[in-house]
Design a protein around this nucleic acid. Sequence first.
DNA 1: CAATAGCCCTGGTGGC
DNA 2: TGCCACCAGGGCTATT
Length: 274
Amino acid sequence: MPEMPEVEIIRCNLEVHVKGKLIQDVKVLLPRQIKWPLPEAFAALLIGRTISAVRRKGKYLLFEMENGVLLVVHLRMTGRLCYKAKDNEPDPYMRIQFLFKDGDGLVYGDTRTLGTLYALREDELWRIAGLADMGPEPLSGAFTPLYLMEKLQKHRGKIKSFLLNQKYIGGLGNIYADECLILSSIHPERRGSSLSMEEIQKLHAAINRVIQEGIEDGGTTFRDYRNGNGEKGSHQERLYAYGRTGEPCRLCGEPIKKMEVGGRGTHFCSYCQK
DNA sequence: CAATAGCCCTGGTGGC
DNA sequence: TGCCACCAGGGCTATT
């Protein structure tokens, strides 16, 4: 499941390949994944355009065309974008295909088909609520301990749910949320408003740390994630909590436990996290 | 307004 | 071996 580090890796890898490429054709194999505009208009907006940049905001990828049109992609659970040279073997779960004038292509594949794609201009980005309402990203100047404190003071819900809510912090998903909680010794069911300033500072540092390390490791590949070249990341080898149920905590040796918090599987250490 | 439950989706897994 | 319930979970919508 691509989160901010994985999407950043994909952005970085794809930009090298697609910058300056002219889109000659767009084949929409599964129209319902196009959320705006209608599939025919989606293709028409992109055909004949040249990609000038690849941007990212939270978990969204934004391909900028030379005329200002943006192709926006959210990969959700199993979406993947892969640059394909002319003779590469096809993705069996290909849903959308972008063909370039030089014969290469960009393939959007998605087994569970939960991903979403849009084509619109910069001044129409408000149509994508999750993008327009997104809070500051980890590692950004706006994401400060003070910002975190102000939001948490008013939050009566559980900290795990807070971390997953993109309107507070843009880019965290289930894996990195569990990781930053174990690294800051905070129990996932703690109420946001109950955190001390010291805990908030630890949490802030842990969020930046896990995102930074995730990017450095080329992302976390648990099941489906692949970078823009179809390769796996390695951060799963360094995880403290996620997917380690029953395995010894790397900090104290107690077995990692799993519970449900806010409808999400949550991995934690009952000894370290209070 | 905010928290929560349900829903979308399909492949992989474990139980029998 | 085959069948099937169940799980994975981001983000949207409906409900409380």
